[in-house]
Amino acid sequence: MPFTLTKASVAKSFVGLLAASALVGGCAYNEALGRNQFLLVDNAALTQAADQAWADALRTQQVSRDAAANARIRRVGDRLVQAAGLTNIRWDYAVFVEESPNAFVLPSGKIGVTTGLLALVQNDDQLAAVIGHEIGHVVAQHAAERYSSTAVTSIGLQAIQGASGDYGQAVGALGGLGAQLGVLLPFSRQHELEADQLGVDYMVRAGYRASQSIALWRLMAAQRQSQTPEFASTHPSDASRIAALEQYIRSRGYN
């Protein structure tokens, strides 16, 4: 049967070649996670964008000048950085004035926490659970892995949308939702649970109590007004997270 060259066949071949080449060149073993990762980039490749995002946050958001609060997150953070073996990175911390308890990390070694989080945590052990979790994301190269997965999914969906006119666009739109719910969001939940476990390891190495990570998430669960269903959330439900932490802490013999 003769091979017919069509736009659809070209798009399909391109996606297949992209996936094959990515699998050959993009698989890396992460010792901290004990699994292979699909990486088109690494943390170093995201540094410039991360530093720009940090500069933008410092410029556009209200930053707390509370000396005690800033000293506290740096003191706890530096102990955890040492425990994680990441002293080769220059770490920067900032406290953002925001009532909602939250924290974030950028792969270039930038950690932000909110005043709402500092008001919520009851001790440094609980603060260490948060910062340890954020450091865990960096060790696990989750930002790079997330970027890589999203990039390949986006390219594949664009090829499908361009392959068959209006029908292709309709399929692509549905595919976008399917990819989000079936691939990207659950993978992000996996990242969150992995960061929880790494954070607990770093807490213990730094001399903090692992059990306080569970206490922290119980506090977080109690203060939430509403909750997105887990199937449509980038984060595990509080109940899932607490159960996973309890099991992990028992398996490691932590207290």
Rank of each mutant, 00 (worst) to 15 (best):
G172R: 07
A244N: 10
K12V: 15
G116H: 13
R205F: 03
D92W: 02
L39K: 10
I131C: 09
L86R: 02
K12P: 01
A173M: 14
A170S: 13
Q62D: 15
Y202F: 15
A239C: 00
R250Y: 11
N30C: 02
S226F: 01
A45I: 03
I89H: 03
G26P: 03
G26C: 08
E230F: 11
V24G: 00
A119W: 04
V171H: 02
A69P: 05
Y202Q: 04
V152T: 12
V183F: 07
D42K: 09
L245V: 06
G182D: 14
A83P: 08
A8Q: 08
E230Q: 08
Q61N: 02
E246Q: 08
L86Y: 09
L58T: 06
L117P: 11
V81A: 05
Y202G: 09
N102M: 06
G253R: 13
I249L: 11
A32R: 00
F231P: 00
A232S: 09
L120P: 04
Y147G: 02
A244I: 05
I160P: 01
R72D: 07
I111C: 12
G176F: 15
G175C: 10
G112Y: 03
A222I: 08
A215G: 03
K7D: 09
A143S: 15
L58M: 15
A195H: 00
A243N: 11
L245W: 09
D42H: 15
A128K: 07
Q227I: 13
T60W: 01
R90P: 06
P186C: 03
Q227T: 15
A179D: 14
L118I: 06
V139P: 01
A20L: 11
A179N: 14
R146W: 15
H191Y: 03
Y254R: 04
A71E: 11
A159N: 05
S188G: 10
R74I: 12
A119V: 00
H142V: 00
S188Y: 07
S226K: 04
V113R: 14
S240M: 08
A20G: 05
T115P: 14
A8I: 14
N88A: 08
V138R: 00
T114C: 13
L120Y: 12
G112T: 02
L127G: 07
I155G: 01
C27A: 06
S148P: 12
V63P: 08
V121D: 14
N102L: 09
Q212M: 08
A32W: 00
I73C: 15
E134T: 06
G176M: 04
P229N: 09
D66S: 07
G112V: 02
A195Q: 01
I73G: 15
Q62V: 01
V152M: 14
D196S: 12
V41T: 09
S213I: 13
A179R: 04
L193R: 14
D42M: 06
T234K: 00
